[in-house]
Design a protein around this nucleic acid. Sequence first.
DNA 1: CCCCATTTCTGTACGCCGTGCAGAGTTATC
DNA 2: GATAACTCTGCACGGCGTACAGAAATGGGG
Lengths: 224, 224
Amino acid sequence: MTQPKRRPGPKRALSEGGVLDAALTLMDADGPDAASIRRIAAALGVSPNAVYTYFPDKSAIEQALVERLLGELNRAAYNGGEWRTDVEALALDLRSRLTAHPGAVPLLLGGAMNGPEALLLGERLLEVLARAGLPAEAAARAAYLVMVYVLGAIALEVADVPQAGALAPEPDRIAARRAAMAHVPAETFPRTAAAVDVMSGWIGTEQFLWGLRRVLDGLTRGPV
Amino acid sequence: MTQPKRRPGPKRALSEGGVLDAALTLMDADGPDAASIRRIAAALGVSPNAVYTYFPDKSAIEQALVERLLGELNRAAYNGGEWRTDVEALALDLRSRLTAHPGAVPLLLGGAMNGPEALLLGERLLEVLARAGLPAEAAARAAYLVMVYVLGAIALEVADVPQAGALAPEPDRIAARRAAMAHVPAETFPRTAAAVDVMSGWIGTEQFLWGLRRVLDGLTRGPV
DNA sequence: CCCCATTTCTGTACGCCGTGCAGAGTTATC
DNA sequence: GATAACTCTGCACGGCGTACAGAAATGGGG
């Protein structure tokens, strides 16, 4: 029950968590670039440099933000049943948390996957995959592969959000995608044009799960 | 043999391609942020706004840069043999071109995958996968899946380059990764710590290919 | 109880960034 | 040769991250 270890100086007007809250809110509302230090400070009613009391620089804010999102994911329960359904649940959970905050995705892929929560996520994934009966080396490689797929799918899914914060509802996004693809010239891209109808499921939960299941199939049914 | 259609006005001191060359050079030397309009102009010996004669804004430069890289990939020959080796060759080619210019990877994932060269790449991938004997719908989904894997793997691989331009040689990167992972506490992350040795192959060509083959296995050997 | 070291926040300033705008110089066409 | 089109320059604006110096607030040691 250690006290917060008060040291001299005036009471803090902000908190690390409050800064992250403000950053996330701004990002969700006006895109990733809206989470600037100056705007965060303005939203909190302090001068820009007050933020530097809580984080040494902007990259520390980004790192902490990613860690918070991954931490929430890691704290969420997963049932511990069949390993495939556990992997799917974990992947779907990560996906829904990241698509809820599209601005955070570039941070994840930009190298912020090194904190303790990222390690813990990998550990959890390893635990689940261990139950698939894979040899140790294959399990480690498999965890990385699953991570690559999940993050790649989310990144591509989030990539073509105009620049606003939150993603549109899934049916709207599918319709927009289909409309965008409707104009591909069939003479130069015959196969792509022919696939437009099929692609209605792209960038949707269904395609995400389909791909994940193919990956898991490849892990268990492939040679060696 | 249509002339370049000279219109009134002084001779152009630059060219679109020259701007892209300068941007790529700067990016490779000093990281993605070095490719600023002002620095590009300085490298070319013109005033910053001269660049706006050739591209309407910075995002157009980024888009054109991605299109150039994908165009070179699309112009490269692939043998047209067994479909698996063709997919692998295409993936390895894309990977080597992107790791040669790590700064371009965030642009790709940031939504610049909509140009004609990106479409053509998808078309080529569809053509190769058609030879795998997949039904049309599965082939379309599979092309997207392969793209997700390849881009995700490259993104994660490039993510932890400090911030310099070019990637270090592969053995150095593997050693650095291993050194970084050597300090994970075994009591909190037992499986991760135990996997450190195995992970020497991560972020390497071998792991990239291993993952790709598992994906291809999942496409052909999975149920339905 | 009071001083002082410590911490928090403010204000100013610097060097970047992308880019809008006005203008000067160059060139092909009539 | 006049004119219209085009290229490039210079200046300016607002925004960014953040270094630096200083004022106000606070708790602990004498």
